[in-house]
């Protein structure tokens, strides 16, 4: 196991634990405003300082981690649940009209960056965390579909698949029995990377107001609130920014480390 893998896993675990802890305990209640105590720099009472409403930033970060992780994880789930079967199907029917249709569909979704999808959804349904999940999730679908198809196609050329076909096994059965186990590592690695991209995308969406709405805490919204205060109270902008940076860095190191550990030949797509 590489150093990167250990550091990445440790960083990721820290944020997951913080998020989990926030369900039962946070240092301060973030729903009570304490205006006189606003914009205080880090101190013994407030380790990471307070924001413009006097709320404890550490508590906000813990609650925000919850939002980030939930949104990114569900978005990866959507991407995998829809993308992997599509990719397997396209590979199994390689060269058919269905394959062509799936791939063209993928290309089309790639023309809609998750932000544009979020804009479309928000324009009609209004902003919410669910919309962020859907927007990022839709964008993850072609990522996993392409990756699955790309990894499955060379496997279909291998003799062991031919042997399975000689044994009368159907394409669906071969996909599940032979293809899927051979691409699991790849999916784990790419899933980690998409998770990290999901954290970034969620932050961006809530920063521009298209993600989770108040009173739900989110790192992106904390940054949006901090924007005009950056010169007076830099910590309000620095803390959430570093939270995002460290979480994403941790997940990326974890993904790369997992790749080297599981199978160094895996190529991840990073877009």
């Amino acid at each position: 196991m590489s150093r990167g893998l250990i550091i990445g896993a440790a960083l990721s675990v820290v944020f997951v634990v913080l998020a989990a802890l926030s369900f039962i305990w946070t240092p301060f209640d973030i729903e009570t405003l304490n205006i006189p105590n606003k914009l205080k720099p880090p101190s013994g009472a407030h380790w990471l300082g307070t924001d413009h409403f006097g709320r404890d930033i550490l508590s906000m970060i813990m609650m925000g981690a919850r939002t980030s992780i939930a949104v990114a994880l569900l978005a990866v789930g959507i991407g995998m649940a829809v993308g992997v079967p599509l990719g397997l199907l396209a590979a199994a029917r390689h060269g058919s009209l269905l394959d062509e249709l799936i791939m063209r569909g993928n290309d089309l979704v790639f023309a809609f960056p998750s932000l544009v999808i979020a804009i479309l959804i928000t324009a009609v349904f209004g902003a919410s965390a669910v919309n962020a999940i859907i927007a990022i999730g839709i964008f993850n679908v072609p990522v996993f579909a392409r990756l699955t198809r790309g990894a499955a196609l060379p496997l279909w050329e291998r003799d062991f698949i031919l042997a399975a076909r000689v044994c009368g096994k159907s394409a669906a059965r071969i996909s599940v029995e032979h293809i899927l186990p051979n691409i699991t590592n790849l999916m784990i690695v790419q899933g980690t990377i998409q998770f990290s991209l999901g954290i970034l995308a969620e932050a961006a969406l809530s920063y521009i107001g298209l993600g989770a709405q108040p009173p739900t805490a989110s790192w992106g919204r904390m940054l949006a609130d901090a924007q005009t205060l950056v010169s007076i109270a830099p910590h309000t902008a620095l803390v959430p920014g570093f939270a995002i940076l460290l979480m994403v860095l941790g997940l990326n190191l974890l993904g790369d480390g997992l790749r080297d550990w599981l199978d160094p030949r895996i190529r991840v797509a990073r877009v």
Partner: peptide, 8 residues
């Protein structure tokens, strides 16, 4: 660089 949110 990959981990930095560009707006931040």
């Amino acid at each position: 660089g990959v981990a930095i949110p560009n707006f931040w």
